[in-house]
Design a protein around this nucleic acid. Structure first.
Lengths: 231, 231, 231, 231
DNA sequence: AATGAATGAGACTTCATTCAT
DNA sequence: CATGAATGAAGTCTCATTCAT
């Protein structure tokens, strides 16, 4: 599938109910509002999204929106929080349980990153956070702590596992290697929600193929073969 | 230098006060306004930047801004042209005249990309365009044509040169390879102007080192050595 | 009544306060706004009337005005429709049903023109359109089509009826005759809203008497008596 | 009372020495500015005419305009004064010297009114004053005294001459008769500068023929024939 | 809880007017 | 005298937010 085909592909919905107070409030809050807001914020940015548009798309009146979210800014924060709340634990576990080479782990990591985030509506959050970070520093800090850093730690663990097993080069700089893995994902996601959305014909790219290819490229550099990729 | 150190590094300050007020200003105004606008657009986004702020930062009144740029949107367009599209011809020429291996060309390309755009305030344009593309389809199209496509063609020519000379693998997919070169640059630039600007301590990255390292990584995949990196 | 007495004569004032606030207002708002707008447009001209003034006079805030009329120009058009073009059908019907001589029809036409437009606030529209036509060509075209031309056609039908019945001279030029009927009305209306409004004492004219007198004068020229008034 | 005193006191102090000082200043003032302003004010009205447009059309810079006229409002007043300044004395004399019937006098009066005012740029002043009277009451009063009233007196004298000679009916109401003469002129002038200027094809009227025809019509009513025109 | 009419601060933009050159 | 760059008050219109129903 090409990147241009992916654009506008709406994804799944999360259907987990049951306990916890936070959970309950989240349930009670019209999920439709957060859904509508996510779409619009991603598409038009925070400032250009009008509160009424969100309400209308969610099928309620303007007043109702403010019944649930005291302000547009609060709505924005809720959208981000709602959508980044952890499926991390679950995903993380997969890697704890993972059996196979560390190279496969890296490939798997990139693949699921794309499948579960990049290819779904969740990628909108990534785009949103990066686009609006300077306007919402507080939220950016939260995102950094709750999303970026855990993700980074996961990647580090994978890389460390490769180094420990002798599969990856001993001297490799884990910090830099982590970025090598992230960059293609972030790049793809940002493009999907910006320029590629405006001119799909200029981005005849199959993201999955690109991701797998990039996985191979970076692994090339990681592997404990003769010549180093690093200078 | 680390990415975090780069953040917020402005250029020089206006040190010359050799007046001759009026006439000199008339010449300098547009540049002063574009400078101020670039800073503010990058920092706060297009919508959140008020026209008066731009004027005040440029040291003039609200009205004066509209004397030079008929609307805020026109100001935005002028900022893009001033900082990026206006310089391509010159940059392009360097590669026509380039003598050396194609690998060196790729390295040089990535290096100057970072030096001239990534490390300067011009990178703000990249961030801005990607963040606001959906809001300004017309501008996005303009940017795609004037900036992205010429850049992409330049990279293609470099890659083709390598293939033609036998330096790069014959079967490599130029489209994908071009993205492999772009992704680290775009990634770095987006981070610099978003999350890394909010939490510099979380991004202890030396961008130049990262860029050069990525250059080596991608070149690994391009070079006509034994095993292919590509699938 | 003298022309000077007519000036500034407003209609009634809102005397009923049988509230049920909200829902009743919603219905009444547009009319209230159009009323206020008519007064102000006539008094100060289109350009010199501020939107907020209209709102305040209608007892609402600035924003509310734009809730009902998307722009000041749309407000103007609505005023024209409300006060003139919207009523033509009804007025026209009276002449279809008219029984009596054609001379009486002419007299009746001029009388109701004065009673329903000239003597009311609607005359302000006539004045306004003539004063501002060049500034709003689109609106002028609208007015020409919706008001002037139907009116002219009505007058023509009346005159033709007189000619057909032998009551009016066979060779009379209907185009010119129509202007002979219009001129006194337009003149009176323009004066009422301009110079006569500034110096009422200089216009000790009873408009109704003047109108009826003019009716007789023009009818004199129309009638199929011996000597022709026309050259 | 002098012209300049009536109109809101322009610049000069009471130190008017030498003769012809006023004249000299009027001469010195770029006639081009007043000409340009007249055209634009007539065409677009006072509010919609921008000071810079006037300057540009007069071939000078914006600053120069304000060198001669302290404000746009003063410019307006000067335009009106410049163009209504009396050729009245001269015209009036023609009627003192007139030899012929009073009916011919009326015809001549209407003809020269059209030839010298209606058909020339001077008609713009009439249009302007009527359009803007409410916005410039002081100027309107001046115009009323200096233009309208003398004109009305002239017409009265003509009519009185006719009555005295037995040519016109003895009991006719001079006030009303004067309006009967004015109305077609004012009507024609207003139309020329408003709706007819926007849709000339809707006004296929030969003004001179219309004027002469109207002269005949009103004279019919004035003449001392049997039946009265008045009811 | 839900509505949507109403608000008013604030944004962009215009343009009469000033004043250094 | 003349210029035109600069100003800033004022106007139109938007939209987040409130609150009576």
């Amino acid at each position: 599938m090409s990147l241009s085909k992916l654009i506008g592909a709406r994804g799944e919905a999360a259907a987990d109910d049951v306990p916890a107070k936070r959970e309950r409030r989240k349930e009670a809050r019209p999920k439709e509002l957060l859904d509508a807001a996510l779409d619009l914020f991603v598409e038009k940015g925070f400032a250009a999204t009008r509160a009424e548009e969100v309400a209308v798309r969610a099928g309620v009146s303007k007043g109702t929106l403010f019944l649930y979210f005291p302000s547009k800014e609060d709505l924005f924060k809720a959208v981000v929080q709602e959508n980044i709340s952890g499926r991390y634990a679950e995903w993380n576990q997969e890697f704890v349980d993972f059996e196979g080479t560390s190279a496969d782990m890296v490939r798997y990591c990139m693949k699921v990153w794309w499948d579960r985030i990049g290819a779904t509506r969740a990628s909108g959050i990534t785009k949103l956070m990066i686009s609006e970070a300077r306007n919402f520093p507080e939220l950016a800090a939260f995102y950094q702590q709750e999303v970026i850093n855990p993700g980074k730690r996961l990647i580090r663990r994978i890389l460390q596992r490769g180094v420990d097993s002798g599969e990856f080069r001993a001297g490799m700089d884990l910090e830099y290697a982590a970025y090598a893995i992230s960059a293609p994902m972030i790049f793809l996601i940002m493009m999907k929600h910006s320029l590629a959305a405006c001119a799909p014909e200029d981005y005849p790219l199959d993201p999955e193929r690109y991701v797998m290819q990039q996985a191979d490229v970076v692994l090339h550099g990681f592997c404990a073969k003769p010549e180093g990729t690093d200078r």
